[in-house]
Design a protein around this nucleic acid. Structure first.
Lengths: 265, 265
DNA sequence: GCCCGTCATGCGTGATCATGCCCGTTTGAG
DNA sequence: CTCAAACGGGCATGATCACGCATGACGGGC
């Protein structure tokens, strides 16, 4: 098919490169203009943007996209997914009760991830704790708590999760020993154990578990039964699971029979 | 100093980003002004503030919101020092020219501090680099850049500067070797050397200098002649000083005679 | 030259999202 | 204590999106 328009026919990767260039140049692109500009349907543009988004090159927004790096806040944390947000909120609140109190400042490890970030946001400003984390957003939220001693675990930063991984992180966690670990996961089940899509993160999570005397898993019920690529532990490693009421009482009982206490917030 | 605001339609995340910026800049925003400013209804603004609140970036108050944690991770607040802001901006721009280019991705170390954060914000989205930093705000700014390999240096986080210090940081910097270091300081002079108020930070800065082949010092001219408690190096350690025109030509010449190239941006 | 698997694209449909409006409830200033 | 302002939940609406399927181009193998 010969194009007589100003835009010559392009192959998909070329078009995507060009879209990326335009996004960076203009700061934002919208689906409809791109569709017209390239003489393709909006559907195709959406597919292109989706591909660029998966590659981490742009941030998809309703109606268009913004080049990655331009937004310095984290839309993932501002997620408006009302259902999960609400549950995560309740989970975070419930988790507060598990913070080590008593005499002397306790020590906790906070995993990376949105649920942990939510917990971080809930930690009272005047709390007296030693906190260790490898999650950049988590650290950002805690950095101004005057009562906290915050230790950041270094490493290579994964773009998608903003978590530190690899050697530095592993070594750091090997050197510490915390009262409580607040662990997050992408999937958990009785047989499948605890799983996450990324191997590097799984390795860090394994180190996390080894570094704490008590393991508290924070996971909304949608994650129950999910299995991802990398397995980093078992439910047996978890002392307490805090989830939401979306987890059926039968499933909860089954988990408790396996030795893990369950709280449905 | 209100910039003319185009009434162009914004995507929700863009608007939220802008609201966050305004909140940090002004210390407080109110629903109605924002609604007018962005040409949306108060409901929408409330929703935006709610999202930002959930993300922990602002705290909701009746009628508006205030930025969370006051000293939150952005330089904007630290940069309310309007005198230096402009100069820091020019210094950051000038520093871009010193980023390693050429064949293969270069490696740079970015010091913590507001000037370095400025530089981080100026690094183009498409840059291909390996960046190492121990500054939380710096890392937050760069975490989204798709072309960067970002390594975060861990350690105890100092509340005031949001920089990682102590053993983890020192050890990490001992293990690396970067093309260029962009160094910041609180004071510099020919006889007094490079100084900063905090001993722990000074130790890290010393490790920084040892870890780079080329040292570029970013410092506005107000810092010239200042001497603080902890000395971490000499101007002789610096290959290039990027400062502003506030540094007198005579002082610049004196520094150059000592072997440090000087750029007055 | 022919066939078939793969891929990019377009189309239709039902779901989702962002926003605005309504209205009962809460808040805080006087 | 009073009351207007502010809030938030529910709902409506139009735009946008995701998914399945059909089409047609391309390319490799026979």
């Amino acid at each position: 098919m010969e194009r007589t328009r100003t835009q010559m026919q392009r192959y998909a990767p070329e078009r995507q490169q060009e879209i990326l260039r335009l996004a960076r140049e203009r700061g934002r692109v919208d689906v409809l203009s791109l569709a017209e500009e390239f003489q393709v349907t909006a559907e195709t543009v959406r597919r292109d943007l989706k591909a660029l988004d998966r590659a981490g090159l742009v941030r998809r927004v309703h109606g268009g996209a913004i080049p990655a790096g331009r937004l310095d806040f984290e839309p993932d944390l501002a997620e408006r997914d009302a259902v999960a947000a609400d549950e995560k909120q309740r989970i975070a609140r419930a988790a507060l009760a598990e913070l080590p109190g008593g005499e002397g400042p306790g020590s906790v490890i906070l995993d990376a991830g949105t649920t942990a970030a939510r917990l971080a946001a809930e930690i009272p400003l005047e709390a007296e704790l030693t906190v260790v984390t490898h999650g950049l957003p988590v650290a950002a939220r805690l950095a101004d708590h005057p009562g906290l001693t915050l230790h950041l675990v270094g490493g290579r930063i994964r773009h998608r999760t903003r978590a530190a991984v690899d050697d530095w992180a592993l070594r750091a966690y090997r050197e510490i020993n915390a009262d409580v670990l607040f662990l997050a996961t992408n999937g958990f089940s009785l047989e499948g154990g605890l799983t996450t899509p990324d191997l590097a993160e799984a390795a860090v999570k394994r180190a996390l578990i080894a570094a704490a005397r008590r393991v508290v898993l924070l996971a909304d019920s949608a994650k129950f039964g999910q299995q991802h690529f990398a397995r980093f532990g078992d439910l047996a490693d978890v002392d307490l699971l805090i989830t939401d009421t979306g987890l059926s009482p039968e499933d909860a009982r089954a988990i408790e029979r396996a030795g893990t206490e369950v709280v449905r917030a």
